[in-house]
Design a protein around this nucleic acid. Structure first.
Lengths: 152, 152
DNA sequence: TATTGTTATACTCTATAACTATA
DNA sequence: TATAGTTATAGAGTATAACAATA
């Protein structure tokens, strides 16, 4: 039995960048999920933590826009992070509709561990590519991601 | 407001190929879903149709292995394709546990339309890249996909 | 014993609408 | 009126276990 499936797929799939992106996106997500599972976290939680670590306090709607998460879905994710003691929701005194979301000290520590795990998974994923190839790939993907943000 | 989110994301996300793959995979999936929706199909249906068009009759477990779909999930997908008159399940006379899945004549026609739509979506997705860049990207992604099939 | 197709279950993600409190 | 956070619901993807028929 075993695994070289890709060669057995029709060109209409294995030669399409769209299909490869979907397939590899799911694979990367799965690898990362397995690593962070023991922390009680899922990928969306980690995206939030890393964003807060870099950007400081953000309103929920800002997090949702940055990460392309529905703000309705974000509520539960933040509830869970709050339950783990990793983030804090503070009412904004200027605009009282808003909650400023920030990392707790524990949240800062956990985010550092998450970042280290992300690096490790990245290394596993890119094992077959040399540095120059990784840079080319990263550049192309960033271009596509920027285009996706604007148009389409 | 508007959209240049990618630049506002932390490097821990926007510079990670893993994150970009997840984000772009979802984007590609969404674009494709919108186009094939009017046919009553979802991406997984199309993957099955394109695979059958290329490989001829396959047992369900073979389709599941090729496309990384759980065979428990495949049952419902094939029920739906059968309901649309696009595929046929025929008992295998040699191994009577198996069903040979094949395209109907209507299924062949629909698959051709799906392939055309896939090409159009691919063009939209890759609009910002010239041919040489697309080939480099495709090559790198195929390498990663092959590595993912084997190891990890 | 192991495999194929099937059923059932549960969890996550995604999308939508509607409610509240504020602006 | 419009926006921020919330609640609720439904569809789709994923993962698992268990069963009947067959090998």
């Amino acid at each position: 039995m075993s695994s070289p499936q890709l060669e057995d797929l029709p060109d209409a799939l294995s030669n399409h960048i769209g299909y490869l992106l979907v397939r590899l996106g799911k694979h990367a997500q799965r690898l990362f999920s397995l690593e962070i599972g023991p922390l009680g976290l899922r990928p969306a939680h980690c995206d939030i933590l890393l964003t807060l670590a870099d950007r400081g306090a953000l309103a929920q709607v800002e997090i949702a826009n940055l990460l392309l998460i529905e703000r309705a879905h974000l509520v539960a994710l933040l509830d869970q992070l709050e339950g783990l003691g990793l983030v804090l929701r503070t009412p904004d005194r200027v605009d009282r509709r808003r909650h400023a979301v920030t990392l707790t000290p524990t949240g800062v520590e956990t985010t550092a561990r998450v970042a280290a795990i992300a690096l490790k998974v990245e290394e596993t994923l890119l094992d077959g590519l040399i540095a120059a190839e990784r840079d080319l790939l990263r550049g192309a993907l960033r271009r596509l991601a920027r285009d996706a943000d604007e148009g389409d």
